[in-house]
């Protein structure tokens, strides 16, 4: 699960970085294709962040204390 979360985050980062470039270029070059592409990157960013959150949430609900964050903030009964 930690891998899934990390992949979600790094993919989100990549999409965001692409979104900045595509958005700026799309605006500058007045290219509708670029702009659409940037908008899709924004949507993908959202999906990837959601994936990371779900990955973390699953570990919290499963009391996976191998994850440092879960171990620091959770106990099985709370």
């Amino acid at each position: 699960m930690n891998e899934v979360g990390s992949v979600g985050l790094i993919a989100a980062l990549a999409f965001a970085a692409y979104g900045v470039v595509a958005g700026a270029m799309g605006g500058k070059l007045r290219s509708l294709r670029m702009v659409r592409s940037a908008e899709r990157a924004a949507a993908a960013f959202f999906v990837m962040i959601t994936l990371a959150i779900v990955a973390l949430e699953i570990q919290i609900l499963r009391d996976n204390f191998h994850n440092a964050y879960v171990a620091a903030h959770l106990c099985p009964t709370s």
């Binding site: 985050l9 989100a12 980062l13 979104g19 958005g23 700026a24 605006g27 990371a52």
Partner: peptide, 19 residues
């Protein structure tokens, strides 16, 4: 397009902090 770019720049910052 620039709205997306600005929002994504903010998103990129927070994603990299989190990662």
């Amino acid at each position: 397009p620039y709205v997306v770019a600005i929002l994504m720049a903010t998103g990129a910052f927070f994603a990299s902090i989190t990662f």
